[in-house]
Amino acid sequence: MNTEFPLWEVFIRSHGGLQHKHVGSLHAVDATMALENARDVYTRRQEGVSIWVVPSNAITASDPADSDAFFEPAKDKIYRHPTFYQVPDNVKHM
């Protein structure tokens, strides 16, 4: 029997207006405990203003073996990068 608590992925929003970012994972029996554990483990140094927890098994990940087919074709398409635009100075978070 597996006696380990299920695994959860933790996402933290560091400031209002920014996106939640993946910061790590932890063990908990349910969402309530996962949220409290995330608060205790990942926000001790004022890292965030909001927390998301997601059961790890709810995440579908790409297979590293598919990397070539998935990611290689984008490599030589430089024209997809918006590097030919001037970004105004007061546009943040670009």
Partner: peptide, 11 residues
């Protein structure tokens, strides 16, 4: 009993 609980109690 677990890392998460250890940290909670220390906090």
């Amino acid at each position: 009993p677990a890392l998460e609980i250890d940290m909670a109690m220390t906090n």
